[in-house]
């Protein structure tokens, strides 16, 4: 069995701020790390590896620095790593990103199961996983909260819906996205680090993909455009009560009565 896990490098903090005077994003202190939700996807793959002897490959797309998260995945116990890196991938939205990743997956070749984290902490869209499945024309199930059974032809999983859990069987090849906090991701190990420090990472550029037409990638292949970014507005009429000089509880009580909550 072959498992491919799609992972992403994200900014180390989500506290991106705009400088009010210049309208420029403040970049100070933006470090990078592996998308935390991907750790659950890798852990799920490694558990399946222990159970079935599957081979686990990670795939990422990003600038060459994103190799760092592949090395981290090696240290956790992943077997192979691929990075899709090409300046022509720049500015990809969901459609172009998922198309590029699907191309990378086709290039890697044989796969039974593709696992993604449920979303990323920078985009928060949760769309890339299902979109990859559509490009590859394979079934998918999102929000998987438990792997119930796995055999040679199919996998049975529990899907976390709003008011219920749906138990479903998917035939291979298929894609699942993993809920967070369903397992405890193992930590990178020093032993694995020594074992894998010379392990090669395969670099894929646009020319390595099945479709080499530039117009399907990056900005050119992205139907959505960010027209502008702006700070959320705050404009409410408000009263400010300093409880140092007003009886706060009495004021709140009167206010709630006035608003007819009591």
């Amino acid at each position: 069995m072959n498992i491919i896990v799609c992972i992403k490098q994200v900014p180390g903090t989500t506290q991106v701020e705009i400088d009010e005077e210049t309208g420029v994003l403040k970049r100070d202190g933006i470090s990078s790390k592996m998308n935390p939700y991907d750790l659950f996807a890798i852990e799920t793959a490694l558990k399946l590896k222990e159970q079935t002897g599957a081979r686990v490959t990670v795939l990422t797309m990003g600038p060459s620095q994103a190799e760092l998260i592949i090395k981290e995945a090696f240290m956790i116990g992943v077997d192979d790593g691929y990075i899709l890196s090409d300046k022509r991938f720049a500015g990809s939205d969901v459609l172009a990103t998922s198309y590029t990743l699907a191309g990378g997956i086709s290039k890697i070749g044989s796969y039974d199961l593709i696992i993604c984290g449920k979303q990323t902490t920078d985009g928060d869209t949760a769309q890339v996983g299902p979109a990859i499945a559509e490009h590859l024309n394979i079934p998918h199930v999102a929000w998987v909260s438990r792997i119930k059974e796995v055999n040679n032809q199919s996998i049975i999983v529990e899907q976390n819906m709003e008011y219920s859990f749906e138990v479903v069987r998917l035939p291979y090849p298929c894609l699942i996205t993993i809920e967070s906090n369903i397992c405890t991701p193992r930590l990178p190990s020093y032993l694995n680090m020594l074992k894998t420090k010379d392990r090669p990472i395969t670099n894929l550029s646009l020319m390595d993909l099945p479709d080499t037409s530039e117009s399907n990638y990056g900005l050119k292949g992205s139907p959505t455009q960010v027209e502008r970014i702006f700070k959320p507005e705050h404009n409410v009429e408000q009263v400010i009560i300093d409880c140092a000089d007003t009886d706060g509880s009495q004021y709140a009580y009167e206010l709630l009565k006035q608003w007819k909550f009591i």
């Binding site: 969901v94 299902p130 979109a131 559509e134």
Partner: peptide, 23 residues
């Protein structure tokens, strides 16, 4: 933007090779 919607929308928008904006 529900469990069902967020799983379904990317499949269809991708099928029509068009844009999808989440949430």
């Amino acid at each position: 933007s529900t469990s069902i919607g967020r799983s379904l929308a990317p499949r269809i928008s991708t099928r029509f090779k068009t844009g999808l904006t989440a949430d």
